[in-house]
């Protein structure tokens, strides 16, 4: 049987779909195309959707271009650049007046950085990819727009 590293050198193209968890109460999905330059280096284009319910309602979609460097047979580090669009919705109940509720909605677009650590195994043409920790950090925000809605209830 061939090792994952040997298969990366032979199979130039890969497509993977994944599901993950976002702390504290979120989840995400990712669709990735990869191009293997050689055993060590892979260039990836990934579309990602992340959503979280806590501490605020938040959803974001991003497209990332990444370089993934394999240190051995399966272990990798990845770094990339991304373009992200997101919406954050939050509700504040004022402590001094329980009938006042402030709702805010922020829409943003941002360029960001993306880092990841994980392992990818290949058996024949099958791929199993486990990214242990991924970080996406928006850095440069473009036209962030905030809408505040002040609601009187009761």
């Amino acid at each position: 049987a061939q090792t994952s590293a040997q298969l990366r050198a032979q199979q130039k193209h890969s497509i993977t779909a994944g599901l993950g968890f976002v702390p504290l109460a979120g989840a995400g999905g990712i669709l990735t195309y990869g191009f293997s330059v050689n055993q060590e280096l892979e260039i990836q284009l990934a579309a990602q959707l992340l959503a979280s319910a806590f501490p605020a309602s938040w959803i974001s979609g991003s497209v990332n271009l990444k370089a993934r460097y394999y240190l051995g047979n399966a272990f990798y580090l990845s770094a990339g650049l991304g373009m992200e669009k997101g919406t954050i919705k939050d509700t504040f109940i004022l402590p001094n007046n329980k009938v006042d509720v402030i709702k805010s909605e922020t829409q943003y677009s941002a360029f960001g950085l993306d880092f990841g650590v994980g392992q990818q195994w290949r058996w024949g043409s099958f791929i199993l990819d486990l990214e242990y920790v991924g970080v996406h950090s928006p850095l440069v925000f473009l036209n962030p727009r905030s809408v505040g809605v002040d609601k009187q209830t009761g």
Partner: peptide
């Protein structure tokens, strides 16, 4: 900063 923990993906290579 958005973190994601344990992203499990499956797919194919060609």
């Amino acid at each position: 900063v958005e973190l994601r923990f344990v992203m499990l993906s499956v797919g194919g290579a060609f």
